[in-house]
Computed example of a mutant assay.
Amino acid sequence: MDDTTTTITPLGGDVYEIDTRMAGYSGITAGYLILGDRPCLVEPGTSGSAPVVEAALRELGVGADDLATVVVTHIHLDHAGGVGDIARMYPRAEVVVHEKGARHLADPSRLMRSARMVYGDSLDTLFGELKPTDAARIRAVEETGTIDLGGGRRLESHHSPGHAKHHVGLMDSQTGDLYVGDAAGVYIPETADVRPATPPPDFDLDTTLASLGKFRALGPQRLLFAHYGPVTEVEDTLERSAEELRVWVDHVKDARDQGLDLDHAVAMVVERTRDRYAVSRPDVDPEIAAKYEVLSSAESNVAGIMHALDRHA
């Protein structure tokens, strides 16, 4: 498989899932192309994924001047790291992001410094460099916003903080698809597990649960996870997402009350939650669990919850 080999999955309704092959992994981060009068790319993925995404769009008949819009659910590098590259490849595309993230796409220097502190040398392998996007091409949305997909079809953005303060969910008026980003956690299609995604510094339990309630109230027909793929069991999945968040927060509270440091807290939480996930069973390929640990590690989740508990204390 070369660097730009594409995996495209038609999902119906002129929606195509693109495996962005983050850091060379398959089935870890998805972008989505909505084809129509005004083609729209949701979640371009990392900078390293940009050639893969460009090859997929070419295969789907979308040329350099054809892409109308690029939308990100939030500015974490696994979702938005490729925005600058994609903006250069598609010079007519408008870039849509929540207002709290817009300045970081125009000037990524502060975001990249923070990411470098967290990831060190592995940053380049995992994500690459987020390049600046001309501020004139960025449209910031607030509590709600609308993206014109052409033919009367639209994508409606809904501010959904909790995972990140600059997070939005995106609802397709025609299909009822809801692009959930990371607000509902990580879905593992191989085992149908739902795991939390609670990294520092923005995670907040009550805010996240409120966003999940907002998603439920929208009445989506299908959830489209960036990690990873479509889910039609909407109610059950959103409920499971909320339940897992509560379980992890309760266990981290226990660890904090016991005065455990981060390493010991992570070990305790992993041990207590292992049986909740089919991906942990001995008959499941351990590589599946390993690739999701790269993406959304137990250490990152526990650190984010610890940070939130300290903030409230």
Rank of each mutant, 00 (worst) to 15 (best):
R21Q: 13
R21D: 02
R21T: 09
M22N: 03
A23R: 03
G24A: 09
G24D: 06
G24V: 06
G24H: 04
Y25Q: 12
S26T: 07
S26L: 02
S26I: 00
S26F: 00
G27A: 11
I28V: 11
I28E: 10
A30W: 04
A30M: 12
A30T: 14
Y32N: 04
Y32E: 03
L33P: 05
I34G: 01
I34V: 15
I34S: 07
I34H: 08
I34C: 09
L35E: 14
L35H: 11
L35Q: 14
G36I: 02
G36F: 07
G36M: 05
D37A: 14
R38L: 08
R38I: 00
P39Q: 04
C40D: 02
C40H: 07
L41Y: 11
L41H: 08
V42T: 09
V42S: 04
E43D: 08
G45K: 10
G45A: 10
G45Q: 09
G45R: 09
T46H: 07
T46M: 08
T46S: 13
S47Y: 10
S47I: 00
G48Y: 00
G48A: 00
S49I: 00
A50F: 01
P51I: 02
P51Y: 03
V52E: 02
V52Q: 05
E54D: 11
A55V: 11
A55W: 01
A56M: 01
R58N: 12
E59L: 06
E59M: 06
E59Q: 12
L60M: 07
G61W: 03
V62M: 01
A64E: 15
A64M: 02
A64Y: 00
D65T: 14
D65L: 10
D65F: 09
D66M: 03
D66G: 11
D66E: 12
L67S: 00
A68P: 07
T69K: 02
V70F: 06
V70L: 14
V71M: 10
T73R: 04
T73P: 12
H74D: 14
I75A: 07
H76P: 01
H76A: 11
L77F: 13
D78R: 13
D78S: 15
H79S: 15
H79T: 15
H79M: 13
H79E: 15
A80F: 06
A80I: 08
A80C: 06
A80M: 06
G81I: 07
V83A: 10
G84L: 09
G84E: 09
G84Y: 08
D85S: 13
D85H: 12
I86E: 05
I86G: 05
I86Q: 05
I86V: 14
A87G: 13
R88A: 15
R88E: 13
R88M: 14
R88F: 09
Y90N: 05
Y90Q: 05
P91M: 12
P91S: 12
P91W: 13
R92D: 15
R92F: 09
